[in-house]
């Protein structure tokens, strides 16, 4: 375990979800699931974050916002697409204003299915994301960037 994996900081952004997944992301913070026991901190500042947790699909309006958040995050970083809308557009795939899943604009590392996704899956995804973050960090180091 490296430094980052013991305390990943997560930033959450709601693309165009129905709110269900967002509420479950918050529910993962409260006493029953309590992700903070793994050192996960939910931050509002992209420059503090290691993991970008996106719910909901991408549309014309939020595309620049999502890219902006992603670009502000320091390397190495991991992107989680949480919920079926974020993975593929889900039930709203056919809507005219929905471009599709998060992978249309960002490289996604972990896809989490579910409508709405359960808090347990979110915790699993974050743990998986932490593993990927470690790998990325190792590669980053090997490339002589850190």
């Amino acid at each position: 375990m490296g430094m980052l994996s013991r305390s990943p900081w997560v930033i959450h952004y709601d693309g165009s979800s129905c709110n269900g997944c967002d509420i479950e992301v918050l529910a993962a913070l409260m006493p029953r699931f309590d992700v903070e026991r793994f050192g996960v901190v939910n931050t509002g500042n992209p420059k503090h974050a290691d993991i970008l947790l996106l719910t909901g699909s991408i549309n014309e309006q939020n595309k620049p916002v999502v890219l902006n958040i992603y670009n502000q995050m320091p390397e190495p970083k991991v992107v989680l697409a949480v919920g079926i809308c974020a993975t593929s557009g889900g039930i709203f795939r056919e809507c005219y204003n929905v471009l599709g899943g998060v992978d249309k604009v960002l490289p996604v590392d972990v896809y989490v299915p579910g409508c709405a996704v359960r808090p347990e899956s979110i915790i699993d995804a974050v743990v998986k994301g932490v593993g990927i973050l470690e790998e990325k960090r190792a590669a980053f180091k090997a490339a002589g960037k850190a």
């Binding site: 549309n59 014309e60 309006q61 005219y96 204003n97 471009l99």
Partner: peptide, 16 residues
């Protein structure tokens, strides 16, 4: 509303 289509509720479905 900033949408991908202009006046999206008033255009033919095939025009999408």
């Amino acid at each position: 509303y900033r949408t991908a289509l202009k006046t999206p509720f008033n255009c033919a479905p095939e025009g999408e």
